[in-house]
Design a protein around this nucleic acid. Structure first.
Length: 262
DNA sequence: TTCCATGTTCCGCA
DNA sequence: TTGCGGAACATGGA
């Protein structure tokens, strides 16, 4: 599930549930989920502390521990967080579990193991090292800067919007959604795009992400006017009388409306 | 049994 | 240098 709106939801989930309680124990159920650290490093960095701050950048989540280090989470294709009572059954694919002295626990659950759990000295440093671009919801990313980043590039607009070094946080689902709402074909070459079309993408991007985060927060699904609930070949377009087509762009399954996306 | 999957990275080729 | 296609990673669900 995890693209930017999902990771933002996890960030709020951590603040809501896992703050203000002492970390009593850390369990690593599967070593393959760790990035560049050993279980002992993780335990040393967290045990005895409390979580105090969160930072999200794109699809990356950082959680500061009062002992100084930041827990760094990336969710891959199937990562998830689950806060539960230790007396209950842990999630099926729990890979790392952080236990609190109150008798509760936060599990990092990831069926497919594409995600990673690590430590960071500080988020800014890690963001720089990973070469991540602006977060789409960063107020510093205005439309002028957005145009400056994308305009000189060549290639299909969808491929460029998915690049984490240009803008960090968009993935397959939400890029399709943004282009659907902008009325732009996912294969359209950047070189053929005018300023007004890029501005349209910029506005759709902020609107789609904000609306999705807000609805997730309230436990609601995607609006039926979104493409996301209609990701099926031959489905009726919820915006015009066209039908949804399925193609491959940048190696990823892509859904779009052949009628209103040009 | 086969195909597919909301992510990332690496490799070879143009 | 840049962009692209394909493969790999690991696993379960349809």
């Amino acid at each position: 599930m995890p693209e930017l709106p999902e990771v933002e939801t996890y960030r709020r989930y951590v603040e809501q549930h896992a703050f203000r309680q002492k970390i009593s124990r850390v369990t690593v159920q599967d070593l393959r989920i760790l990035s560049g650290i050993k279980p002992l490093h993780l335990t040393r960095a967290l045990k005895g502390g409390i979580f105090t701050t969160t930072v999200r950048h794109g699809k990356h989540l950082f959680v500061r521990c009062s002992r100084g280090a930041w827990l760094h989470l990336h969710f891959g294709m199937s990562g998830d967080l689950c806060y539960y009572d230790s007396s209950e059954e842990p999630p099926r694919f729990a890979r790392v579990t952080i236990h609190f002295s109150r008798g509760t626990a936060l599990a990092y659950d990831d069926m497919r193991l594409f995600g990673r759990v690590g430590l960071s000295e500080n988020p800014a440093k890690t963001i720089h090292e990973r070469g991540l671009g602006f977060d789409p919801l960063d107020p510093a990313l205005g439309k002028r800067r957005f145009l400056t980043i994308l305009k000189p590039r060549r290639g299909a607009v969808k491929a460029l919007l998915m690049r984490q070094d240009l803008v960090a946080g968009l993935g397959n689902l939400y890029v399709d959604e943004i282009l659907f709402q902008s009325g732009i074909h996912p294969r359209k070459p950047m070189q053929t795009m005018g300023d007004s079309q890029l501005e349209k993408i910029f506005r759709s991007m902020k609107r789609v992400l904000r609306a999705t985060i807000d609805r997730k927060q309230r436990g609601l699904r995607h609006p039926s006017r979104f493409l996301i609930p209609h990701r099926e070949e031959g489905a009726c377009c919820p915006r015009c009388d066209g039908s949804i087509e399925r193609i491959v762009v940048a190696g990823r399954t892509t859904y779009f409306c052949g009628t209103h996306q040009k």
